[in-house]
Design a protein around this nucleic acid. Structure first.
Length: 877
RNA sequence: GGGCGCAUAGCUCAGCGGUAGAGCGCUUCCCUUACAAGGAAGAUGUCACAGGUUCGAUCCCUGUUGCGCCCACCA
């Protein structure tokens, strides 16, 4: 706030303006948001007659606070729903949060560790209680941030994935899948995190190239020996075979025989298996069925036993010298022992290979045989793929479809059980006699001696996969479910296409009898810093959206994010850009302020076009074009383009040209001022509506002041009235060109912008004829009085502007400028002439292109003769 | 190893067959009574490289180079 704020400017009508000279977001945002919520604007009525529009929030993890990426996503969703609400839809933006099993458990465990405790010190029940406490705190933080952002969500419908209703949904679908044979329990190789002490699914493993060492080890003795290579030497303790290719002659004599496994007293068979690539390494592979997925398969094909050699913490359990050693420790100890026996045949060599890490804690994954629960994905994934293939669900941008297909078409079964405490407990009970009972939501679990529930919980994505309908009350047949399913669109980041989107597709289609959970998937990119680098806390470039909202306002942040939102493309964002958006908000503010002080109004019908000035008709014509363009961009999720389009229309056309051109009209008063006042009121009214979904706060403040309306949130979305005026658009283009040319000339002459110069304008018969007053005002041209002597003559748009620059003119600068213009015009003439002389061009180019080139040629010729004349007239020296 | 994408002004990115655009930054002038968070004027690009198609290519095709991302049970 500057001191200007106190100085209330006085309007043309002598009334004080109600608005300060600068927009102060902090003073309006909070109040407006609370008002919107109190009035229930964001609530969704399932009984409404209006057509529904539904979007769910991608539920943020309760683990913390929202980052810039959330702010980005929320801006897009909020803009979509606000527009639909204005269009007359019954809109539901469903809020809520995800319990985020493993992530949240890890966070709370870290908190406990600060107190020197582990979850085991508390016990399961107390620990879970502790997590609920944590959820209460950070959940509040998240909804606070959403309010600051202006998210128009239906707060009364807020859901949490561990709510009673959602838990019921989880049990219901588990039971159905189980009964349909799509959930089963099996012992397989899983990804084990020795730090989190749980199994995780395939997509929760992040692979990174890592330098390891490939060691070559001789198995067996003398003639009955061969060499295998490995990067995980410790697993040899669990080897139960060596495999070679069936047609590999080098090893044909060994197949079916047993060879001695070093460091043990075991002998293992040599088996022939197609999986082995004879070209790779020695063509012989050690087989550890309990610790490698390939080996597990080989083992199954050949009936080999599986020997688990490590415990949950990846510590060796095999009795002997290595027992109790960690896997890495054991690795080097075993290599050492083998070397001592002379079994390392080639020196170990550096080897770069891909190693899996836990996506939550980055610990190296240990593949391991384990009894877990699985979803049989085959039929579910097929349905999920087909829904996109046959067009029932569209993915934006379309390029992302190939990723989606690649995933759903090659999906392995999904390991859903987690050895955690925080999450949905698996609804399966085991009896004393080995009975297994899956318990539905309304069923009593079996009781009695020896019965116990499975101790594992479900993968967190199991419950988020139900989000589009569990939040609406499913499995109950609620009014809301009827009204708001399927969702209209899903807006989320391409990074969770597999984790979340594909799972919602599978579950939605399954649970809702083949109705996909949404019609459209709009994928956005990731927010990056101003140099395009990934934002991360550890790198120090992460931004708390609250900081920028505090400094520049929520609208500025939202506008910046929307403006960067090209579909599926990452969004770099820097503080400079937020400043630019803040400046834009302020510009809109001040333009509206000016309009209010000069009689802009929305009262009464629009005047007849016959009464309007060319400028009035021009800006209304453009306004309607912009309405149509904005709609098209919205429908195509082109946020960047619509924000950019509105920015330039507002600033360049309305503020810099229309308002400036109309100032003389406004200041002169009379009927013309009334007409333009009504037109300006109309333009701002529509512009503010168009901008509102992206920048709700500043537009609400200005619009209610301008129109006296209740709220933009529930106002009508503008429609293209169909009004177009090509003649007025052409006329105003000529005016703009003329003004710019004269200004450039003045600047070239070194005249100060404010310096008044006598001038004679000869505009008769040109498009400029009606604009003399405005041109004189914009160009600071005085009337040609006594003793006027034209020292410069500028032909523009068929008219002539003569200036008396006696005393001010710089002839050298003028000569230089003219020569430059001449060169440019000559080049243009040469180019266009060459083009028009090209027969191929004339034959094949479309008419409008040829016409355009002709025009350019004509203009160039005219320019050249004009400039030559002017150069001749210039006094020498 | 597969697949996708990107290379355009100092930076971050739009454009995608017909004389190169935006924001920020930069230069000059201006506190012109809506706005200095502003106004006016301006400079800046072998549109990665090499071929090809075309009357015409930043835009289409092929290849090269350099990046980025996703997928993959490469011992």
């Amino acid at each position: 706030m500057t001191e200007n704020t106190q100085q209330r400017p006085t309007g043309a009508h002598g009334e004080p303006a109600d608005l300060p000279t600068q927009y102060a977001p902090a003073e309006v945002e909070g109040k407006l948001y609370e008002r919107w919520v109190e009035r229930g604007y964001f609530e969704a009525d399932a009984a409404s007659e209006k057509p529904p529009f539904t979007v769910v929030i991608p539920p943020p993890n309760v683990t913390g606070s929202l980052h810039l990426g959330h702010a980005f996503e929320h801006t897009l969703i909020d803009a979509l729903t606000r527009r639909k609400r204005m269009q007359g839809y019954e809109t539901l933006w469903q809020p809520g949060m995800d319990h985020a099993g493993i992530a949240t458990q890890n966070v709370v465990e870290r908190e406990l560790a600060k107190e020197g405790k582990s979850r085991h010190d508390l016990g399961r029940e107390a620990f879970v209680e502790r997590v609920w406490q944590w959820k209460a705190e950070s959940g509040g933080q998240i909804s606070g941030q959403m309010r600051r952002l202006g998210d128009g969500v239906a707060w009364s419908r807020e859901r949490f994935t561990m709510d009673e209703g959602l838990s019921k949904a989880v049990q219901t679908i588990f039971k159905r899948l189980y009964d349909d044979g799509l959930i089963y329990r099996a012992e397989r190789i899983i990804n084990w995190c020795p730090r989190c002490l749980t199994a995780i699914s395939d997509i929760e493993v992040e692979y990174a190239d890592q330098d390891g060492e490939l060691v070559s080890i001789r198995y067996g003795e003398g003639e009955d020996s061969l060499v295998v290579a490995t990067t995980r030497a410790e697993t040899m303790l669990g080897d139960t075979a060596v495999a070679v290719h069936p047609e590999d002659e080098r090893y044909a004599h060994l197949v079916g025989r047993h060879i001695k496994l070093p460091l043990t007293d075991r002998s293992i068979p040599v088996v022939a298996d197609e999986h082995v690539d004879p070209e790779f390494g020695t063509g012989a592979v050690k087989v550890t069925p309990a610790h490698d997925p390939n080996d597990f398969e080989i083992g199954r094909r050949h009936g080999l036993p599986s020997l688990t050699v490590m415990d949950d913490h990846a510590v060796i359990t095999v009795p002997g010298p290595f027992q109790g050693q960690d896997r890495l420790e054991a690795r080097s100890a075993i290599v050492g022992a083998l070397r001592a026996e002379g079994r390392i045949v080639a020196e170990k060599r550096p080897y770069s290979h891909s190693v899996g890490h836990c996506s939550r804690c980055k610990t190296t994954i240990e593949p391991r045989l384990s009894l877990q629960w699985w979803v049989k994905t085959g039929p579910l994934a097929k349905a999920a793929g087909d829904a996109v293939r046959d067009g029932r669900v569209a993915i934006h941008p379309k390029e992302m479809e190939s990723r989606y297909f690649a995933w759903v078409d090659n999906l392995h079964d999904w390991c859903i059980s987690r050895q955690l405490w925080w999450g949905h407990r698996i609804p399966v009970w085991y009896g004393p006699g080995g009975e297994v009972v899956c318990v539905g939501p309304d069923e009593e679990p079996p009781s009695g001696e020896g019965w116990h529930q499975d101790t594992d919980v479900l993968d967190t994505w199991f419950s988020s996969g139900l989000w589009p309908f569990s939040t609406l009350g499913w499995p109950e047949k609620t009014e809301s479910l009827e009204k708001f399913y399927p969702n209209s669109v899903l807006v989320t980041g391409y990074d969770i296409l597999f984790f979340w989107v594909a799972r919602m597709m599978m579950f939605g289609l399954y649970a809702m009898d083949g109705t996909p959970p949404f019609h459209t998937i709009a994928l956005h990119g990731m927010v990056r810093d101003q140099f395009g680098k990934k934002m991360s806390k550890s790198f120090g470039n992460a931004v708390n959206p609250l900081d920028w909202m505090d400094r520049y306002g929520s609208d500025a942040l939202r506008f910046t994010l929307a403006r960067g939102a090209n579909p599926g493309v990452d969004v770099p964002i820097g503080e400079d850009w937020v400043q630019a958006s803040r400046n834009f908000a302020n510009k809109v503010w001040n333009a509206t302020r000016f309009a209010l002080m000069n009689g802009a109004t929305v009262e009464g019908p629009l005047p007849d076009a016959a009464e309007m000035s060319a400028a009035d008709r021009w800006i209304l014509s453009r306004l309607n074009t912009v309405v149509a363009e904005t709609d098209a961009y919205y429908d195509d999720y082109q946020f960047a383009k619509l924000a950019e389009g509105l920015y330039h229309f507002a600033w360049d056309e309305v503020f810099d040209w229309y308002v400036e051109l109309s100032k003389t009209t406004f200041f002169a008063g009379g009927r013309a001022a009334e007409v333009s006042g009504r037109v300006l009121g109309e333009v701002l009214d529509v512009l503010l509506r168009l901008l509102h979904p992206i920048v709700p706060f500043v537009t609400e403040t200005l619009w209610t002041t301008l129109t006296g309306g209740e709220s933009l949130v529930i106002a009508d979305w503008p429609k293209d009235s169909g009004f177009r005026d090509a003649a007025a658009e052409a006329e105003l283009a000529a005016v703009q060109q003329a003004v710019t040319e004269v200004r450039r000339f003045r600047a070239d002459q070194g005249l100060q912008p404010g310096q008044r110069v006598p001038a004679r304008l000869t505009l008769d018969g040109t498009q400029l004829v009606a604009h003399e007053v405005a041109m004189r005002s914009l160009l600071r041209l005085q009337p040609a009085g006594e003793g006027f002597s034209a020292t410069a003559s500028l032909p523009v748009a068929g008219a002539v502007v003569e200036l008396d620059l006696s005393g001010a003119i710089d002839f050298e600068a003028e000569r230089k400028r003219l020569n430059k213009d001449l060169a440019a015009a000559e080049k243009e003439l040469k180019q266009t002439t060459a083009k028009l002389g090209n027969e191929g061009f004339l034959a094949k180019a479309p008419d409008h292109v040829v016409e355009k080139i002709r025009e350019r040629q004509g203009a160039a010729e005219a320019d050249i003769s004009r400039i030559r004349q002017q150069l001749e007239r210039l006094p020498q020296g």
